[in-house]
Nucleic acid binder design. Sequence first.
DNA 1: GCCAACGTTGGC
DNA 2: GCCAACGTTGGC
Length: 155
Amino acid sequence: MARRYWLMKTEPGTFSIDDLARRPGGRAFWDGVRNYQARNLLRDEVRPGDGVLVYHSGIPDPAVVGTAVVVGPATPDPTQFDRRSPYHDPGADPGAPRWYGVEIALETVFARPVTLETLRATPGLEGMVVLRRGNRLSVSPVRPEEWSIIVARGA
DNA sequence: GCCAACGTTGGC
DNA sequence: GCCAACGTTGGC
């Protein structure tokens, strides 16, 4: 199957691309996804080798700040069973996990973050899911052309 | 801090 | 199964 591309949101106050860069090998388990549509993408569509646009949300200038690569298949997110985790889900059953995550590895930190404002203003990106009004998907698909445009602007 | 948008929950 | 209430996301 051809390599596919995704945009994953994170609040940098919780986990930023710099936090990712500080991990050994730039690797981290992308956890805490608690939305069924995003979960389904992670579990059923995202594959090792796929490209990830890392997006910082909840800040004055939300932006794509770099890229990563998916390095493992979706596996159950352990935080759902962890009572002390902010992502704990009392309804999750260890016999039938509800939430999944994937391991990713940092590829590039953009020299120039590609801001939401730029995304909106750039021809060819009009159809991006992340630009849709009221969009709340924390994992969303990215077309190859969109990936190319954004990487060319940021790297 | 505000609030629109949207997903989820729960009463019926 | 409907839908109002509620909680959360996320841009502004």
